[in-house]
Amino acid sequence: MSIYTLGIDIGSTASKCIMLSDGKEIVAKSLIDVGAGTSGPQRAIDQVLEEAGKTREDMSFILATGYGRNSLEEFADDQMSELSCHAKGAAFLFPEVRTVIDIGGQDVKVMRVENGIMTNFQMNDKCAAGTGRFLDVMARVLEVDVEDLGALGAQSTKYVGISSTCTVFAESEVISQLSKGTDKRDIINGIHQSVAGRVAGLAHRIGIQDQVVMTGGVAQNTGVVGALQNALGHEVHTSPLTQYNGALGAALFAYQKYKKAHKDK
């Protein structure tokens, strides 16, 4: 009989679930575009259980991660930091990974992974610079959907520097460029370079080693991934499951913990 484990990643801007069978096969996944403190986590849980045709009782172990991981104390069996889970998920998808860069809704994390285990990490401070929130703010000012930033930035023909890493000052810079009539696509490209510069600075603090894997929602933005590759001078790998990576790591840890508890008995 299969062992089902559930990983729930409650981020600041989205809630994601991954259900695994025997710690290997993805049975179901769900994503709701609101995170901690909203109905998102419960909706994501309901959705993943429904998709798999399972109930809470079918889950051998549930592990929560992400900014809102402590809010599921009654539902989940345990919780872990999203850094450990992102490292775990990335090592599952890319066994050769040594550096994981996770750009989430409100923070940036760079992790060193050795033999599938996180051995060092760096996080940004309280500042929102270089995070998904930074891109949300810029997209709003530019009146474009955040999902379209990558495609639009790719059409840029001219370099426009956005020198500020501070979200508030960068917003002023973007408004200034718009008032000068600068092409939005060039501004977007400049924003991607700005994010990449900020993240690369953080990544260099622990050193870049191949393979480099980028996870989190912002990894879906091809403009940021490309700019980051240039800034780091290393190929940056992403996965279609990038936004689910933390939940995947949580489901993998859940399986490990279940097996350990079972073995101990």
Binding site: Y67, M80, S84, M118, N120, F121, D125
Partner: peptide
């Protein structure tokens, strides 16, 4: 960990400290 005495939310510090315990 960047701190000041007006901090009231320690979400990020919590994540960093928990991850540090893991490594």
């Amino acid at each position: 960990l960047g701190v000041d005495q007006q901090m009231r939310d320690f979400g990020q510090a919590s994540t960093a400290i928990q991850a540090f315990a893991d490594v």
